Amino acid sequence: MLVGFYKYLLFPLGLAGGCVPEAYGQTPQDSLYHIREVVVTGRVVRREVIPVQELSGERLQRLNSHNVADALRYFSGIQIKDYGGVGGLKTVNIRSMGTNHVGVFYDGIELGNAQNGTVDLGRFSLDNMESVTLYNGQK
């Protein structure tokens, strides 16, 4: 009698297990579809959100400037403060924010004074410099 009970219990479970793929709508596919190869080519266009100002090459040589501070005078939107003659301190600020809010980089290395955060741009000569670039914001 106990064996008959298990037969009636296993029979509905077997039916439920057999219809599971149909219950989820998963039917086996007999055919394969081949799609032709697609080649995508393009070029990288680097556009900055904020325009970059740059002096380089022959244009930088024609400026008749001796140091970076003199070359930066040709950029728009910046102010050069010159604190005394040929050997004096020359600093730059952008949008009147102050010189301690301007990051100055030379070959990717940030320059700065630990005491007051300013950089003397009169110390850097343009003799072996390839380009001078101004970014108004993050690069």
Score class of each variant (00 low, 15 high):
Ile94Glu: 00
Gly88His: 05
Leu126Thr: 05
Gln115Thr: 13
Thr27Ile: 07
Gly122Thr: 04
Gln53Cys: 06
Arg123Trp: 02
Asn67Met: 09
Gly98Pro: 09
Leu89Tyr: 04
Leu72His: 05
Ala69His: 04
Lys90His: 15
Arg62Ser: 13
Gln138Asn: 13
Val132Glu: 06
Gly85Ile: 02
Thr99Trp: 07
Phe124Gln: 06
Gly103Arg: 08
Pro21Asn: 11
Gly112Gln: 00
Met1Pro: 05
Gly108Asp: 06
Thr41Leu: 08
Val44Met: 14
Val102Trp: 01
Gln138Val: 14
His66Thr: 15
Gly57His: 01
Glu58Leu: 11
Val49Trp: 06
Tyr24Ser: 12
Gln29Cys: 06
Gly87Val: 00
Glu130Asp: 10
Ser31Lys: 04
Val45Met: 09
Val104His: 05
Leu55Gln: 03
Phe75Arg: 00
Thr118Ile: 11
Thr41Met: 08
Ser131Leu: 03
Ala23His: 09
Arg59Trp: 05
Leu15Met: 12
Val38Lys: 07
Gly103Asp: 05
Tyr83Val: 05
Gly98Ala: 13
Pro21Leu: 09
Gly108Leu: 13
Met1Asp: 11
Ser131Thr: 02
Ser56Tyr: 11
Val40Gly: 03
Met1Asn: 11
Val52Ala: 13
Tyr74Pro: 00
Gly122Phe: 00
Gly117Pro: 04
Gln61Asn: 12
Asp107Ala: 12
Val3Met: 11
